[in-house]
């Protein structure tokens, strides 16, 4: 278990590194067809993925705790 976790983490770091590097290289050397200005930022997708994920979790959890989440027999009791 310990070793597989270590291998998986190594794999994750490689993925992070390669994807970011590829993004930067592609931006420099390839002429891609872009629609919006932010797509020119080399690591835009990475940042958007990270921030988006955090925002989704935090916002939905807040929405749930404040308002939408109820005990399981909510409908039966009423």
């Amino acid at each position: 278990m310990k070793i597989t976790m270590r291998v998986l983490f190594l794999l994750l770091y490689i993925c992070i590194f390669v994807s970011v590097l590829a993004g930067i290289l592609a931006q420099l050397y390839l002429h891609m067809h872009l629609f919006f200005w932010w797509e020119e930022i080399p690591v835009f997708s990475a940042v958007y993925g990270f921030v988006g994920c955090v925002v989704i979790i935090v916002a939905s959890k807040a929405l749930g705790h404040r308002w939408l989440q109820k005990e399981e027999d909510y409908y039966e009791k009423r």
Partner: peptide, 28 residues
Amino acid sequence: IAMCQLLVFTFVAFWMLRDKLHGTPTIT
């Protein structure tokens, strides 16, 4: 490349916040 970045960094955020994502015995 864009898709890979998006997904890899989603994973990173998930891993950091995974304790927050346990199910709770509730309905929505």
